[in-house]
Write a protein that binds this DNA or RNA. Structure first.
Lengths: 261, 261
DNA sequence: ATTCATTGCGTTACACCGACACAATCTAAA
DNA sequence: TTTAGATTGTGTCGGTGTAACGCAATGAAT
């Protein structure tokens, strides 16, 4: 009924050039966490053709490191650079791919995907998670998806394919790593207050923390610089501002916060 | 000069059927840790054709979960079942594959790999690590490699392709996970003594631990059953034997040993 | 019987953690 | 201008776990 729009070049490219320019059967998916209004959110894209939300993902170029591919996806969507981005799991269930997603998408343009096309194969995907400053990102949708949204971690559900599970795994990883990696640098603006940092931790852990013990523990890691400024404007006592001490932060990223044993 | 032996069926199969039966461009590699003579060892295979040692690895069947593929490799090599096996990293550098390995191998049989054959492509590999009971395994080599060896972790070097790096990453992961996962069940015989368990931890961490504190900490995890038997035969006081409490062990595997936060 | 390394169990000092107290501060309302 | 109310900065205290070390018991070798 609806008049077919003409097929966008990037989509055509996938069908025609995918086979020779992209690594077969493997993709990357990015769980991009952002923090806003004291809530942890995830960047999702809407595939109108299947009426579902999905994670931003992409394919791996023939001569591209898979980590670079994930970074390219992240950068393309958010415009951000120098972001904490980490592999966390490989999803290799043979039934996870759903060709219907692609069929429906191309149907919008009245295009039928040829049998045995590169796109209609089983894909194994590598999950990455990233932490970004909500306020610094400028999100771009692309030809496959026209809408995006930051969706509260509590309200994520009914995503495309196995993306719910991917997010669950990402969140698990993030929570575990919170215990031994310094998290927060990318999720918060450069200057932030201790209560803001605490809210972030509480959102990730989904758990209230004691204000005073949190501060003591955080300062104990020695990765923060206390500034001689306060954040005025709130209706209460003005809290001090902090920044991350880049050098010590990087060191902690490599060596972990404790060491234990 | 040397008379060409005839090409073994599994190798021929790779060339001829790989394209239709195996997932393209993805492999799995297993870092199999064993414990013997108070040292941590890794199972390596020798590729005579390239005169280098390599990790046991394999490909993923078209309809096979990638985790099952890794498990299949582990089981094929060791004959063991019900083993702790975990993904730890994806190695996706575009230059990591080295077609020369395959060319040399097939040259042994006077066979030239056709251009653009399935085998001669870039492979992205998923690293898995496993912990096994050295004494329970019966190692099998296969048609690609004729020799195997347990090589001391300290002496691993100059492996094929990026396998040194893969092992380094595996060891890093193992050390990190030691702090929050119960390790040891698969590396030791069913019954073991506290000093034996300690030696294992010391081998993994490459660090001496205090005997008395180690015991207290271990018992504190409440994943061990103390038996009413001792290990006689040593030239000294007979230490008590322990087993892992399976139920609590599994629970700790899921939830971690601490929880922190 | 004696020797001696090893094991089982215990002690002490110290750091860290959770729970809570109290004073200082900032804005908004009175 | 003063007061109220919520929030922040700093400190205390008891419990817990850890590192470092002591000492008696054990068991094979001498």
């Amino acid at each position: 009924m609806a008049k077919s729009k003409s097929l966008p070049a990037p989509l055509k490219h996938l069908l025609v050039k995918g086979n020779e320019q992209l690594h077969p059967g493997i993709s990357v998916d990015c769980v991009i966490f952002g923090f806003h209004d004291n809530a942890l959110k995830i960047l999702l894209l809407n595939l109108e053709s299947v009426k579902k939300w999905s994670l931003p993902g992409g394919f791996v170029l023939n001569n591209e490191d898979i980590n670079d591919a994930a970074y390219r996806v992240l950068n393309l969507r958010t415009g951000l650079d120098n972001i904490f981005l980490q592999q966390f799991h490989v999803f290799g269930n043979p039934n996870r791919s759903d060709a219907k997603v692609h069929h429906l998408k191309f149907q919008e343009y009245g295009v039928k995907i040829p049998k045995n096309n590169w796109l209609i194969q089983r894909f194994i995907t590598v999950g990455y998670y990233a932490l970004i400053d909500f306020t610094a990102a400028t999100i771009k949708a692309d030809s496959y998806d026209s809408k995006f949204a930051w969706i509260d971690i509590e309200k994520v559900e009914n995503l495309m394919m196995d993306h719910d599970y991917i997010i669950e795994k990402a969140l698990q990883t993030l929570r575990t790593q919170l215990a031994y990696l310094p998290i927060g640098k990318n999720l918060l603006p450069k200057k932030f207050t201790m209560p803001e940092l605490q809210k972030l931790y509480e959102a990730i852990l989904n758990k209230k923390l004691d204000r005073r013990n949190f501060q003591r523990k955080m300062l104990g890691f020695e990765i923060l610089n206390k500034l001689n400024e306060t954040r005025k404007g709130g209706a209460h006592k003005a809290p001090f501002l902090y920044t991350f001490n880049d050098k010590k932060y990087q060191k902690a990223l490599k060596e972990g916060l404790y060491g234990s044993w």
